[in-house]
Design a binder for these strands. Structure first.
Lengths: 236, 236
DNA sequence: CCGGATCCGAATCGATACTG
DNA sequence: CAGTATCGATTCGGATCCGG
């Protein structure tokens, strides 16, 4: 008999489609944009290639993912409208996951797509609406992102040496107001365990350039509502 | 080596804790209230007993679930605060799942806990705030629920013949304004595929008692914002 | 009945190698 | 680049069993 949950229920129906191992992480990366097979494999370094292949097939049969031929990019996988509907699910799951993250395993990697989704999950539009538009540059591990925060929303773009997605340069526009080089502890900000505006903490922000006073603006924009009991002892 | 996603990311951190098969369905049931081992097994008829046992152990080690001894109820499992934080995740997943649900497999069951969570997921507080307080009685399969919708929120309680959780009777309070006997198609309402206020559709509401004119109020309270293109052809 | 533990075959997953 | 093939290691599912 089929491996089914046997329930007529929204949660179980969702899990039948995206509950298999790795499925939601593939969706996570595709939420950032269309990706080639190799892009996905690099963004998910520990996924076995046969599993990636199998998941993509299943997600297509479920109508969440579709193959497309992009002009200057070749064969890519992209989300359908139904698949894109999982954005809330992934962001909500990510927000909860921030709080559950413990000390980073040194073997763990941070990818451009996962950090982009983390920023989207931690983003607080109601805070951004009260602040001047700001451009940040954020580096973590090998990831290099350009982050535009404006009253009308958030935009995150990769700014690596390799820019295969787009022929044009992203040097257009003003330079970043604040440049951050962060460590894995950056996720402590997303988890709300760093007081907005507080001083740099061990491993959170390694170095900063530009208008360093904007650091507090960054943490205010990208941390959840602070509850006092969650603050790090050293900051209380 | 441990079976890990190898990413320092909120989504993967969350999936390491609740991404295993059956885990989120156990959480779903515990979100309704503390449950005994046997309650969980009955609410998840197709879960192997060793898997239930293993998941409960893992969820406890992760700090999401705790064992407690309730006075007149014996040994129960209940969510910790961290575990309760998954409510948004489960409700969001359920909302997305409604849209993905296809024709019900006749073998699929509907349980009191899954239907309770479905009602919570589909509930629209901003609609309830504009309507008079209403009490519904909803029956589906063997499930029998009492639903109180008020301006300040939603409350769902089981109303079965067997009431092991509470010694007192639930007959207290006024009788329901509307009594519904529904079929599995009720989820079409939650999916927004039944026009609020529309006539009963095949398999959605089998019978109704009380003030039948309140049917439209029910569908308005428990369906997502309607998009025209999602309506069933027969209702367009 | 409650709360599991144990055993075993089937299915899935992970790692590596290989191919058009 | 975009996957398939293979195979051992795990996990899952189904059933049974056991102490209170």
């Amino acid at each position: 008999m089929a491996r089914t949950y046997g329930q007529h229920c929204g949660v179980s129906a969702a899990l039948e489609l995206v509950g298999e191992r790795w499925a939601l992480l593939i969706i996570r990366d595709l939420l950032v944009g269309p990706r080639r097979y190799t892009d996905l494999k690099q963004g998910l370094p520990r996924i076995p290639t046969n599993i990636l292949s199998a998941r993509l097939k299943e997600l297509q049969e479920a109508g969440l993912v579709r193959r497309a031929h992009l002009a200057h990019c070749g064969l890519v996988y992209e989300l359908t409208d139904t698949g894109h509907g999982l954005e809330d699910v992934v962001l909500t799951l990510g927000r909860w996951g921030f709080a559950a993250m413990d000390e980073p395993d040194p073997a763990d990697v941070v990818t451009a797509d996962s950090l982009t989704i983390a920023l989207r999950a931690a983003f607080r539009p109601e805070v951004a609406a009260t602040l001047p538009a700001t451009r940040y540059r954020l580096r973590l591990d090998g990831v290099d992102l350009l982050i535009d925060v404006a009253a009308d929303g958030l935009r995150v773009r990769p700014l690596g040496a390799l820019r295969p997605v787009d022929g044009r340069t992203d040097a257009a526009g003003p330079p970043p107001d604040l440049e951050l080089v962060a460590g894995p502890g950056l996720f402590q900000v997303f988890a709300g365990r760093v007081r907005p505006g507080g001083a740099p903490v061990d491993g959170v922000v390694v170095a900063a350039g530009g208008d360093v006073a904007l650091l507090g603006r960054f943490t205010a924009t990208f941390s959840p509502p602070v509850r006092d009991e969650d603050l790090l002892p050293t900051l209380a």
